[in-house]
Amino acid sequence: MLLVPAGAWLLLLLVAPSLMILEFSLHPGLRPGQAFGAYGLGNYLQIFQPIYLQVIGRSLYFAISSTLTCLLLGFPVAYWIAVMAPKRWQNLLLVGFVLPLWTSSLLRSYAWITILRPTGVLNTLLSTIGLPTLDLLNQQSAVLIGLSYNFLPYMVLILYASLEKLDKRLLEAAADLGANPQQVFWKVTVPQTLPGIAAGCLLVFITSLGDFVVPELLGGASSMTAARLIYNQFLGATRNWGFGSSLSMLLILAVSVSIALLIKYGDQEPERY
């Protein structure tokens, strides 16, 4: 009985819409205001045309690279806050790091435009100290910067939660037994925080895969991502809801698999040595 509210919620807001999209996706070339035609896989086959694969490839590239960037930048920060910073500062540091999340991601993207544009903050700074200016805005690099910046706080939060539980006695024991700092890190710290790393990476991957504000605003002329392609199918001039739905199903599938992996591997207790 206690499951009824949650179950109804999921059924109404998650399962039912997904099934509707599935239904849409199985009618090739379905358009709004049109009766459902015959069933077919045409919409799914359309995805395999080179131009659409290229779009999906770009989305994956953005998602994977921003995930790696977040991990590389986020781990040292989280480690520092959780392990090295004085205890009483921890909460404050954490809040400071999460503070940007209180503003809209749209606003943060505009801030990056101001920084990266040809006569922007960054280039003014560079030219004052005599360095050559950079043409970063309206390129893929700007998208990666924007995505990484947007999702870094999530990564830090999750890694912090994981690193905070780190058993420091194990680190001391390892050092005691002759492991050098590098060995301690790779053989003790990393394995213990692996679930946190997996959870952080998947969260960043999933959110950046579906993001289209950042690529749209910072990516310039070649910024088409899967999310924007779906948007165009639903609200653009062509309005092929069938194809848009099959693309959506693909995204839903990718995200579901990621979450399944997260549940299977992310929640395990770290191995004890």
Partner: peptide, 9 residues
Amino acid sequence: DRYWTELRS
């Protein structure tokens, strides 16, 4: 729309 997607990607 196809050409547009191609151009944009």
